Simulated scan of single mutants.
Amino acid sequence: MTSKSQSRHASESPTPEQLRERVEHTREELGRTVEELAAKADVKARAKEKAGDAKAKAQEAAGDAKAKVQDAVGHSRARLQDSTAHAAQRGPVPVLVVGAAAVLVWLQVRRRQQGGRTAQSVRRLKGAARSSTPGRRMR
């Protein structure tokens, strides 16, 4: 019976080639596991990934907002054109009033935009004048 148990035991024990294959398979699994753990531990890369996701969401939201604004502007423009057309049918006076109002709004906006630039120019000129006054020059 000893020979039978030895032969059965011999047939159950893996061959050296099978052992090598098991070792190689285990190494591959271990390598994948280590890579996954390293990826989870890489806080900087994960933060960059989340920042990229947030940036993409923000760009998408900005695009949606831009589309909504463009739609609103288009509707407003259409309503303005309709009201102008109706005013034109009533006579030249309402058209002139609407035109004058548009010019006044445009002038007000332009004045505000240039106000900031004018104030900056005045400050620069005052600064240049101070540095070039004869009493303050270094001798």
Rank of each mutant, 00 (worst) to 15 (best):
K40S: 07
A45I: 04
R77W: 05
L125H: 08
A72I: 06
V98L: 14
V122R: 08
Q89H: 04
K126D: 06
S83F: 04
L80W: 07
R124I: 11
E29P: 00
S7K: 12
V122K: 05
A65K: 14
K55N: 03
E12M: 12
S5F: 14
L96V: 05
A129W: 10
T118D: 03
R137Y: 02
A102V: 04
E60D: 12
R110S: 11
R46K: 15
M138I: 09
Q81K: 15
K4A: 08
H86T: 09
A45P: 01
G116K: 15
V98K: 07
S13L: 11
M1Y: 08
V23W: 09
R90F: 08
A47T: 12
K48R: 15
K66W: 07
K55Q: 11
R136A: 10
T33F: 06
E60P: 01
A54H: 02
V122D: 01
A54V: 05
G74Q: 10
S5D: 10
K55L: 15
P92H: 03
L107R: 06
T133K: 08
R46S: 07
D64A: 14
G91D: 03
G116F: 14
A101E: 13
V98T: 03
R32Q: 13
A102G: 02
A58L: 15
A87H: 04
Q120S: 08
S5M: 12
K48L: 15
R139T: 07
S11I: 02
A51T: 10
K4I: 14
K126Y: 06
R124W: 09
S11E: 11
G74E: 13
A67K: 13
A62W: 09
D64K: 13
T118L: 15
R79T: 09
V73Y: 07
A39G: 02
R139H: 08
P94C: 03
G52Q: 12
D42E: 04
S132P: 01
K44S: 06
D42S: 03
Q81S: 12
R90S: 10
R90L: 15
G135K: 09
V122F: 02
A65N: 07
V109L: 09
L80Q: 03
A38M: 10
K66A: 14
V109P: 00
A47M: 09
L37A: 13
T84C: 02
W106T: 13
Q120C: 01
T15L: 00
R79V: 10
E17H: 05
R22T: 04
R111N: 02
Q89C: 01
A58Q: 09
S76G: 07
A67P: 05
Q70E: 15
K50Q: 12
R79M: 12
A47G: 00
T33I: 04
T15F: 00
M1C: 03
S131W: 06
E60I: 05
R32F: 02
R124Y: 05
Q89S: 06
V109I: 07
V43T: 13
R32T: 05
Q81D: 14
R117P: 00
V109N: 01
V23L: 14
V23D: 07
R46L: 15
V43A: 10
A41N: 06
G63R: 14
M1P: 05
R112G: 04
V34I: 15
R124S: 04
S13G: 00
P134I: 07
G52L: 14
E35W: 02
A72C: 03
W106E: 10
E49Y: 11
K66D: 11
T15N: 00
A45Q: 11
P94L: 03
H25N: 03
A62N: 04
